Simulated scan of single mutants.
Amino acid sequence: MTAVMSQPVSAAKAQDIVAMNVNLMINARHLQKKDLAKALGIAPQTISKKLRSEITWTINETQAAADFLHTDVATLLNPNLTTSELFGINKTAAPDDSENGGQLVAGHGFEPWTSGL
C-alpha cells in the first residue's frame, strides 16, 4: 500500500485562491474594495487587478488583506472556503443519534405560536 502525498499549491493557483477568497469575503461582508486598497497601501485600480488575478499578491499584501478581513492567511489560501464558513454557519457536532442528524436548530424564541388565540 503506497501513501498518497498531497501536492503543494502552485504559486499561480495560490494567487487565484487568494483572489477568489478575498472577493468572496468582500462581497459577503459588503466591504468596499477601495478600503481594502487603502489598507494595503495600493491604488484602487491595482486592487481590482489583484482581485482578477492579473497582478500577483505579495506575502505582505496577503497578510495585510487577512488583517483587514479579520482572518488569517490560511483562510485566504483555503481552496474550499464557502460563504457559510465565513459566517460560522455549519452543522453542529451533534452525533446522528441526536434525532436531528447534526443539523442546526433554531433557538428559543423561534418557535411558531401554537396557543390557538
Rank of each mutant, 00 (worst) to 15 (best):
M1A: 14
T2R: 13
V4H: 13
S6H: 11
Q7R: 10
A11M: 10
A11R: 13
A11F: 09
K13R: 15
D16A: 15
D16L: 07
V18N: 00
N21H: 03
M25R: 03
N27F: 11
L31I: 00
A37R: 02
K38P: 00
K38L: 12
G41Q: 06
I42P: 05
A43I: 03
A43Q: 12
T46Q: 14
T46V: 15
S48W: 06
R52E: 13
I55S: 07
T56R: 15
T58E: 04
T58D: 05
N60W: 05
E61T: 01
T62V: 06
T62F: 03
Q63N: 05
A66R: 03
D67I: 03
F68E: 03
L69S: 05
L69D: 03
D72M: 04
V73T: 14
A74R: 12
L76I: 07
L77T: 01
L77S: 01
P79L: 03
P79H: 04
N80C: 07
T82W: 10
T82G: 07
T83N: 01
T83F: 00
T83P: 01
F87C: 01
F87L: 06
K91L: 11
D97W: 13
A106K: 12
G107Q: 11
G109T: 06
G109C: 09
G109Y: 09
F110G: 07
F110M: 13
W113G: 10
T114L: 12
G116Y: 09
L117T: 05
